[in-house]
């Protein structure tokens, strides 16, 4: 077993634990590379099926290609797609000009909160990775959230030997992170090996590409000539810039991401 085989086997193990232990389970699909890899791994875990519904939180500010890609792949792979949108906040004029951190916490976090309450999900699978940024590095694979969606990062339950937290109080939920141990390069090398379809926005057009995908107003492109997966891997092997450097909400203040995530941001 090589490195990618080991990562894959561990993620499958986690996904199968989640599926076994949670009756009301959903998987967040942001249409980005990580959650698309996650979807692929779910199909591996369940022998070509994806018995877990996919949730996409559509802020209405998403890059249009993302929505096209989402609908095409969902149809091809026959997955159950649940789209959540905070229509009320949008009607009241919520948008990035109201403040990026506020916008994120309403159109993403609160929208997710409303959808989860409506559907009664108690387990939510997300494609976050420890190497993305400092607070994610501290995450557990099975990570509890309280009834207000809050993450108590100062007092997390122990987690070892692949024995996960699957018992929880009513009104709380568990976030499940099957890609926590992957790096950005691992993800791309796996995409190459498995030939997983990925939205075009990651590939360079006119000397620029997206390295991380979010909402149109708040996600920047990086200078890049990488038009293929191979070229992206080569670029990442050389780069020293961090992956989320193009995501505006991370840079609002030093601890912006910690605050967003403590309140339930994904």
């Amino acid at each position: 077993m090589d490195h990618l085989d080991a990562l894959e086997a561990q993620s499958i193990y986690i996904l199968r634990e989640a599926y076994k232990k949670f009756k009301k389970l959903a998987m967040l699909w942001s249409i980005g590379k990580d959650s698309t890899v996650l979807l692929w791994l779910a199909r591996k875990s369940f022998f070509g099926h994806c018995p877990i519904p996919l949730v996409h939180i559509d802020t209405s500010y998403k890059i249009p290609e993302m929505i096209t890609f989402r609908d095409r792949v969902a149809a091809e792979w026959g997955v159950r797609l649940v789209v959540g949108q905070h229509t009320q906040a949008l009607a009241e004029g919520m948008g990035p000009e109201k403040g990026r951190v506020l916008c994120c916490s309403i159109l993403k976090t609160e929208a997710l909160q409303l959808l989860m309450a409506e559907k009664g999900y108690t387990g939510l699978i997300l494609g976050i990775r420890r190497d993305e940024e400092g607070t994610r590095a501290k995450e557990r694979i099975f990570s509890p959230r309280d009834r207000n969606f809050e993450w108590n990062y100062k007092d997390q339950p122990p987690e070892f030997w692949d024995q996960f937290k699957t018992d929880f109080a009513a009104d709380t939920h568990i976030r499940i992170h099957p890609l926590l141990h992957w790096s950005e390069l691992d993800v791309w090398r796996y995409i190459r090996r498995e030939e997983i379809p990925i939205v075009d926005l990651y590939f360079a057009r006119s000397g620029e590409r997206y390295r991380s995908l979010g909402c149109l107003p708040c996600t920047g492109r990086i200078k890049s000539e990488a038009t293929t997966v191979d070229a992206i891997i080569e670029e990442l092997e050389r780069t020293t810039t961090s992956e989320r450097s193009g995501r505006a909400q991370d840079h609002e203040d030093t601890y912006a991401m910690q605050k967003l995530r403590a309140r339930g941001y994904m």
Binding site: M1, D5, A9, Q10, Y13, R43, K44, F47, G48, R193
Partner: peptide
């Protein structure tokens, strides 16, 4: 499913 490995399964494989 869609696996690169074939044949006997060995330690570590799901």
């Amino acid at each position: 499913w869609e696996a690169r490995r074939t044949g006997p399964a060995e330690a570590g494989e799901s």
